[in-house]
Computed example of a mutant assay.
Amino acid sequence: MRWSPGGRSDNLEDRRGASGGGGFRGGGGGGMKLGLGGTVVLLVLSLIFKRDLLTEFSGGAPGVQTAPASQSAPVTDAGEEKMVDFVSFVLDTAQVTWRTLVPGYTDARLVLFREGVRSACGDASAASGPFYCPGDQRVYVDLSFFDQLDRQFGAPGDFAQAYVLAHEIGHHVQNLTGTEKAMRNAVQRNPAAGNQLSVAMELQADCYAGVWAHSAARSGIIEAGDLDEGLGAAAAVGDDRLQKMSTGRVNPESFTHGSSTDRKAWFRKGFDSGDPRSCDTFGQGR
């Protein structure tokens, strides 16, 4: 991608010095509540590492006690600081795109953290992966996830990282447009449809990431090979691929994000059209 280091977004909150984010609640006193993206990533990581991370980090595991947040200063690392500049750049370009497409669009904020963080959706660990919290309209990212995206998921490259952030901003768009609330209400009425609706939400966020990529291409940000990196990242986190990696089997009924093929297809649809109206994953229009 074409970009210049050195800029920081006004919508960036750097909490990397607050290690642990206030700790995690133990017992039954109300545990972590993640946005859809974070919850699903935590479930996926539970499969990969063969640990019930969702229960553990939601307060169901014994011995996880609340601890005060550390106020140590952020560790300065040239590589990580360049990454901060990069995610700031992607955040700003994504939101410029959505300001032109969604009337009354209000910016999300991006929170960088290490190890753990407290959000309006509850306490979260780095193991949850990047997530969006509708309650405070913030995207939460531990930058170490991008290294995992490369090493564990086989999706290297800066545009792969940009796709992840653009996907989370897609959830912000869903929140502003009422899709997120409508989805929650639909699940309350019909819990059995929860997985199907979750897949539709996530594929729509992929399509919205593609809409941003279309805008980025028109503005000259994208270089040769970038689109392939984005498509590769979308495929790398498909439910079928992750299930195959963790268990050797694929169970479509348990999908929560969509298959690799579908994630690539919807990202590409958004990229080709540049129009969020093309992202009707609930109607499954192709």
Rank of each mutant, 00 (worst) to 15 (best):
Q137M: 11
N185D: 06
G135C: 09
R8N: 08
V141N: 00
E115K: 11
A124R: 05
P276T: 11
T256V: 14
E56C: 13
K264I: 12
R51Q: 12
P68W: 02
S246P: 10
G178S: 10
W98T: 14
R151Q: 09
G154L: 13
W266C: 05
G79H: 04
D239Y: 05
D158G: 10
S128W: 05
S259F: 12
I169C: 03
Q65E: 10
E56Y: 14
P74L: 07
Q188E: 05
F146L: 11
L91Y: 00
P252Q: 09
S259H: 09
A205N: 05
V75G: 00
S215G: 12
E56H: 14
C207E: 01
E13I: 14
A78E: 00
A209F: 15
L176V: 15
I222W: 01
G135S: 13
F24P: 00
R51S: 12
G104D: 02
E253R: 10
V199F: 04
S9D: 06
W3M: 10
D14W: 05
G59D: 01
G23I: 00
K33S: 13
A182R: 15
G7W: 07
G248S: 06
S125C: 12
Q161M: 13
C121G: 12
Q152C: 07
S259D: 05
H171A: 13
Y105I: 14
Q243W: 06
S19P: 00
V117F: 00
L54V: 15
D240R: 07
P156F: 13
I48R: 08
P191R: 06
V211D: 01
Q188R: 07
F49S: 14
R2N: 04
P103A: 09
T97E: 00
G28K: 14
G170F: 11
D272G: 10
H214N: 15
M32S: 10
V187G: 04
P252N: 08
D85R: 00
G6H: 10
S58Y: 08
P134S: 12
G35L: 03
Q188M: 06
R2T: 14
Y105Q: 08
G116F: 02
T66V: 07
A155G: 07
E168A: 11
D280G: 13
G59E: 01
M1P: 07
A166R: 02
Q137S: 06
D92L: 10
T247Y: 11
Q71N: 07
Y163C: 03
I48S: 05
V211G: 01
G283N: 09
G230Y: 01
D150T: 15
A265C: 10
N11W: 12
R114N: 07
L143F: 05
G37D: 01
V84K: 00
S70G: 10
Q152W: 09
T66R: 01
G63W: 03
E229P: 06
R25K: 13
G194I: 05
T177M: 06
R51H: 08
S246F: 13
G35M: 03
D107H: 06
K82C: 02
R184V: 15
Q71T: 11
F57R: 01
P156R: 05
K264G: 08
R25E: 03
P276Y: 14
A126G: 03
L149E: 03
Q148W: 03
G154N: 10
L203S: 08
A124D: 00
A213V: 15
P156T: 11
E80Q: 08
D136Y: 02
G7C: 08
K264A: 11
G6M: 11
E80F: 07
Q196R: 14
T256Y: 03
P74A: 08
E13M: 09
G270I: 11
G232A: 07
A200M: 13
A67D: 00
